[in-house]
């Protein structure tokens, strides 16, 4: 976590580098799987350029390959992407209030899970320079990984592709574990979310629900519990109940 540093464009670029490197592996896998499903070389690249999202792109390509209709694609991806409503609402509270609409529209395009999670850890209000920096380096990683994956489709051994599948989850783990270790509130929220998520994965009839809805419900219930039990007055977690370390 970075304390009290200046939120400049170059600070943003730098914070985006680990995200970009994590993205390289995931988007590499995306490009490769799209081409191996018979899509033309340019299409995964255009999808990464225009979508800039992980899960949605994988699911979208799967649906297209299975011959799904436009309506089915739109509806499924909308549900998967509904979590962005919550994330963007959350981010809207952390951006400088006088930021112009045009800049907000640009930042919205780059509000991925990882960029959101990393930028929300900054203590100060977020300005557009920092956001553009972190989005730019992450976007570069996402797109170039897709290009490399699409071109290399059959070069990489299956074992390496399999291993790369975990990279994005490792990044998520790196984001949530340190605050969960530090704050009793976050630890409880994380535990509740994981418990609920397992219920939605394994236990019928809950496992009938699509993963997009399940994530939203887990996120809403666990954070509502956290907000009820550990309400915060300021815009950071510092005043929360800290664990002994």
């Amino acid at each position: 976590m970075s304390d009290n540093k200046k939120l400049t464009f170059s600070a943003g670029l730098k914070d985006g580098i680990p995200i970009a490197l994590g993205y390289l592996s995931v988007s590499f896998a995306f490009g490769m799987s799209a081409v191996s499903k018979g899509f033309p070389l340019w299409s995964p690249v255009v999808i990464s350029l225009s979508n800039f999202t992980g899960t949605g792109q994988f699911v979208g390509v799967d649906l297209m390959a299975a011959g799904a209709g436009l309506l089915e694609i739109a509806f499924t991806l909308l549900i998967i992407n509904l979590r962005y409503l919550l994330m963007s609402l959350s981010l809207s509270q952390r951006l400088e209030p006088n930021m112009s609409l045009l800049k907000r529209l640009a930042i919205a395009f780059g509000n991925t899970d990882e960029i959101f999670a990393v930028s929300m850890q900054q203590k100060d209000l977020l300005n557009y320079k920092y956001m553009f920096g972190i989005i730019l380096s992450s976007y570069f990683g996402w797109v170039s990984g897709t290009v490399a994956g699409a071109c290399a489709s059959n070069l990489l051994p299956a074992m390496i592709c399999s291993a790369l599948g975990i990279a994005v989850y490792s990044m998520f783990i790196a984001i949530i574990v340190p605050p969960a270790r530090k704050y009793w509130s976050v630890l409880q929220i994380v535990a509740i979310a994981i418990g609920l998520s397992c219920v939605f994965y394994w236990i019928p009839p809950f496992n009938k629900l699509s993963s997009g809805w399940a994530i939203i419900i887990c996120g809403v219930i666990s954070s509502a519990y956290g907000a009820y039990r550990f309400p915060l007055k300021s815009d950071n977690l510092e005043e929360g109940v800290q664990n002994e370390n």
Binding site: L86, I176, V190, I194, C198, S222, S223, L232, N236
Partner: peptide, 22 residues
């Protein structure tokens, strides 16, 4: 304060649910 805390806690709840058990 409830809504603000809710939005601040949201990233952790959502990411945790996305990680496990996937």
């Amino acid at each position: 304060p409830f809504v603000r805390s809710f939005l601040l806690y949201m990233p952790y709840g959502i990411l945790a649910a996305m990680i496990f058990p996937a």
